[in-house]
């Protein structure tokens, strides 16, 4: 046979190869069993996990689609109505406190009294009689004006009062007065104080800028002299 020497050589080489360990097949079967069990577990989790994923996705979609919860105790409309009611109540209170007729009458009375006192003092002086007449007239006119303005305001208030039904106030825009102060630091400074502080800050900034300009001028002059 051709290449018999090669065959013999290979035969001898194969004989000298290390033999297969006796427990190798047993270890192999254990490994195969482990892999089969782990595959079964993975299959089970593979079946379960799509359902879990679908449930998560459905939950997220539900969160976006569900409408936000509505608080029955407070709503935008009811809060506006409440504020309006409050403002109407305030107005009523003011109107009750300030009765226009008595107010005008009081003002007029005070002025008349003053005039009488003045008249009594200067009764002997004829020069002042005209003045007193003038002042009386002025007082009357001012009293009339006061009455007129007060009546106008009273009419305005009346109209507003008449136009505001007790049960259904007209809607109006909310202002800063309606919103209560909740931050404690806002109680600290008044508006005037804040404005003053801003003004002072601006002045300080301007002074600082002027100072910087002076410094730069001085430096320029010095460098010019040094050269």
């Amino acid at each position: 046979m051709k290449d018999q020497n090669i065959r013999n050589a290979l035969h001898q080489e194969e004989q000298n190869r290390p033999p297969m360990p006796a427990d190798l097949n047993a270890r192999l079967m254990q490994r195969v069993e482990k892999e089969v069990n782990s595959k079964a577990e993975r299959k089970h989790t593979r079946i379960v996990w799509p359902w879990i994923a679908a449930a998560c996705v459905a939950g997220v979609i539900m969160m976006f689609l569900m409408p936000p919860k509505i608080d029955n105790t407070v709503s935008d409309e009811t809060s506006i109505a409440k504020v309006e009611k409050d403002s109407v109540k305030q107005q009523i209170e003011i109107l009750q406190i300030e009765e226009p007729q008595t107010l005008i009458a009081n003002v007029a009375k005070e002025r008349m009294n003053e005039l009488k006192i003045a008249k009594a003092k200067t009764a002997k002086e004829s020069d002042t009689s005209n003045l007193i007449a003038m002042t009386e007239k002025d007082i009357e006119t001012t009293a009339e004006e006061v009455i007129a303005t007060d009546s106008n305001t009273h009419r305005a208030k009346e109209t507003t009062y008449d136009n505001c039904p007790s049960a259904e106030p007209q809607p109006r825009m909310l202002t800063e007065r309606d919103i209560p102060i909740t931050r404690p630091e806002n109680y600290k400074y008044t508006k005037e104080e804040i404005a003053l502080m801003k003004k002072q800050a601006n002045e300080a900034y301007l002074k600082w800028v002027e100072l910087e300009i002076e410094i730069s001028k001085y430096n320029l002059e010095n460098t010019a002299e040094n050269r």
């Binding site: 290449d3 018999q4 020497n5 090669i6 065959r7 013999n8 050589a9 290979l10 035969h11 001898q12 080489e13 194969e14």
Partner: peptide, 30 residues
């Protein structure tokens, strides 16, 4: 040459071959 020396030389030479060539000649001859 049909002698033991040649066979031993061939065995030694086979060990110097790359693994894939060893496998091929073993598959063919053995």
């Amino acid at each position: 040459h049909g002698n033991e020396e040649t066979v031993q030389l061939i065995r030694a030479a086979i060990r110097h071959l790359p693994p894939d060539e060893q496998a091929i000649i073993t598959m063919f001859y053995y």
